[in-house]
């Protein structure tokens, strides 16, 4: 068996894509296809009404979901006020509100 040299990164610090649950990211891509268009420019986070008042980074949260990391999103998503300002600044036309609503819905289903 070949040895993987230098792959013992601290589990708490790394994204283990192989082990992560990918159902959430697949459903996000399905229910909000435009979410795939994100190029991570951060315009949404800069504009964000919630992010103006508290620690809330919508760009990072959706990126984490896309890597199968859902814990932080579950903890943070409820901060969004759904005001739609991000929708107006996104240069890629990501339907940010739809993306957030989809994530909200999954999290709720997950709770139950």
């Amino acid at each position: 068996m070949p040895t993987l040299w230098g792959y013992s990164i601290s589990a708490a610090r790394s994204i283990d894509y192989d082990k992560n649950d990918q159902s959430f990211l697949r459903r996000l891509a399905h229910s909000c296809p435009s979410s795939k268009l994100c190029i991570g420019c951060g315009g949404c986070t800069a504009a964000c009404s919630a992010g103006n008042l508290t620690e809330f980074n919508i760009r990072q949260l959706q990126m984490l979901v896309k890597r199968g990391e859902t814990r932080e999103t579950a903890e943070q998503l409820h901060k969004c006020m759904l005001c739609g300002k991000c929708l107006l600044v996104c240069p890629r036309g990501v339907d940010t509100r739809k993306m957030i609503l989809s994530m909200k819905r999954f999290l709720r289903e997950h709770d139950q």
Partner: peptide
């Protein structure tokens, strides 16, 4: 700085205050 400007404002001294995310 890697980040796209979302909006700019003008302060009382006429300077421009920018908002970006330092991604």
């Amino acid at each position: 700085i890697r980040g796209r400007l979302s909006e700019a404002a003008e302060n009382i001294h006429g300077q421009v205050v920018v908002k970006v995310e330092d991604t």
